[in-house]
Every structure is written in structure tokens, then in C-alpha cells.
Design a protein around this nucleic acid. Structure first.
Length: 258
DNA sequence: TCTATTTGACCTCG
DNA sequence: CGAGGTCAAATAGA
């Protein structure tokens, strides 16, 4: 009995924190849209490569010519799935020293048509091969992110959060191709397209919270501290398995209480 | 034919 | 000098 009350109290606090986070994210996004990538002057794509913008004929092959990004710009997420609601295009894969699985490199699909500079790296965790470590660089400036935000903000302020805690439990399929980590990317792209084309948020096309909000929550994070919090109340049919990473909540708030 | 992925080359940085 | 990050030609697939 007491535990149930505690649960609902904490639930309200969680919702409050998430709402707070959403507001901060909105503010941050407004700021970023005014002045994206201020530390690279033009804020263009050459933060990640080098020669293409000045297409010199004699330097045809400029592969690998780029400025290595600062790790402080990154946000790290550990997730059982690669899906995050965005459309990504893979541009490279690399075997990493002491890592059993290769690291895959993705950029936003809208890099060319909308100049979106978001990047991510996905690597299967050697110690826990069902989990992906996803590192985000930069922020989405493409329209996809607006669609995502609209779905969240247009929704009922409370209920969607509850529903959205339904996380996607990784299936064998998600991990059957560890060597190339390509399969889930297609899934993310397809699901996102279908879901955002519909304004009807029924159970069938409800986006999960971790898919929608992680990039936004990550955007608020200035350090790369990682929180891990997985709770399960699956015995009563309420699927609330979820992961919390790298989000600064109130210091006196503890997920363990739930 | 167009678009996305693969993969080896090549560059930067520590 | 080696590891990591990116490019772009080759390739696959819809």
C-alpha cells in the first residue's frame, strides 16, 4: 500500500522532472537555432571533414581529411536498441582496439538537403553485447526533430509519458548482425517515417520516450556521466523497463526509490 | 536509375 | 607511429 503511494508520488516527480527537461530543451534548441556551432565559425559541415567545400581538382582524394571532434561535445547513451527516432545514414565502420565489435559511424540523413550536422557512433558493448553504446555529436537542425517535438508537445502532458515508458525490448533480430550493426538503422528510418506521417497517436504508432527524448535529453547534458536505472514491474503487465542515462535530475531525487 | 551501404584509403591527433 | 574518424569509389538493392 505504502509502496504504491510512493510509486505514484515518485511518478509525479519523474513527470515534473521530464517536463522541466523539456522546457530546458526547447530553450536550448532556440538558442542553437540562433547560433549553431558557434565554435566553428560558419557552423558548416567542415567541422567533420576538410577538403570538400573547396573542391580543388588536384586534391581529388581527400579521404580522412577532417578535424577530430572534441569529446566534450558528445553525449553518451547506452541502449538496448539503436533506434532513436531519427533517420541516420551510415558513412563508416571501424574496428576498435580491444573492442570485440566494430564501431559504426552515422550522420543525419538530412545532412545534405538540410545541412543537419548531427552525428552518432554506435558500438556494441563488449561486456554486454545486447547493449549499444551510442555517442551523439552535434544536434539535429533538420525538420525531423521538429516533427518529434511536435508530437511530444501536442500530446497530453501526462499520459503520453506514462505510455511512452513502454520500451522496445531488444529482439534477437536487433542483434543478429553485430558485425555490421546495420539492421536496426533501417528499422529506425522506416518506423519514424510511418509514425510521423500520422497525427493519430494511437497505441500502434506511439513513439517510445527513449526514442523521442534521448537526443533532446542528451542535448542538455554537459558531462558524459552515465546513469543506469532499469526498473521492471512487468509482473502486473505494466511494462516500464527503461534506461536513464546522462540526465541531470535534482540531486535529492533517486530513481531507486521507485 | 537512384539511393544507401561497404570498405579501403587517407588524414588528424595523442 | 598507431588508433580513430571520415571520405568516396565500388557495390548492392529497391
Amino acid at each position: 500500500m505504502e509502496g504504491l503511494e510512493k510509486f505514484w508520488t515518485n511518478r509525479e516527480r519523474v513527470i515534473g522532472e521530464l517536463l522541466k527537461g523539456r522546457d530546458l530543451t526547447t530553450q536550448l534548441r532556440i538558442l542553437l537555432q540562433k547560433k549553431p556551432f558557434s565554435d566553428h565559425g560558419s557552423g558548416d559541415r567542415r567541422s567533420e571533414d576538410s577538403g570538400e567545400s573547396s573542391k580543388t581538382p588536384e586534391l581529388k582524394d581527400r579521404r580522412g581529411c577532417y578535424k577530430r571532434r572534441k569529446s566534450s561535445d558528445s553525449r553518451i547513451k547506452v541502449s538496448p536498441t539503436m533506434e532513436d527516432g531519427y533517420a541516420w545514414r551510415k558513412y563508416g565502420q571501424k574496428a576498435i582496439l580491444n573492442a570485440k565489435y566494430p564501431r559504426c559511424y552515422f550522420r543525419c540523413t538530412h545532412k545534405n538537403d538540410q545541412g543537419c550536422g548531427a552525428l552518432k557512433q554506435v558500438q556494441i558493448i563488449t561486456e554486454d553485447p545486447i547493449m549499444y553504446q551510442i555517442t551523439y555529436f552535434g544536434h539535429h537542425t533538420c525538420k525531423d526533430i521538429l516533427n518529434v517535438l511536435q508530437i511530444v508537445s501536442d500530446s497530453d502532458p501526462v499520459e503520453p509519458y506514462l505510455l511512452s515508458f513502454k520500451s522496445k525490448i531488444p529482439s534477437e533480430q536487433d542483434h543478429h548482425d553485430h558485425a555490421t550493426c546495420q539492421q536496426p538503422i533501417y528499422l529506425a528510418k522506416q518506423e519514424f517515417t510511418e509514425e510521423t506521417q500520422s497525427t493519430d497517436l494511437s497505441d500502434n504508432n506511439m513513439l517510445s520516450l527513449d526514442s523521442i527524448l534521448w537526443p533532446d535529453l542528451m542535448a542538455m547534458e554537459t558531462s558524459s556521466r552515465v546513469y543506469s536505472c532499469a526498473t521492471s514491474t512487468s509482473s502486473d503487465g505494466l511494462d516500464m523497463d527503461f534506461l536513464i542515462k546522462s540526465v541531470d535530475f535534482d540531486n535529492d531525487f533517486h530513481f531507486e526509490e521507485i
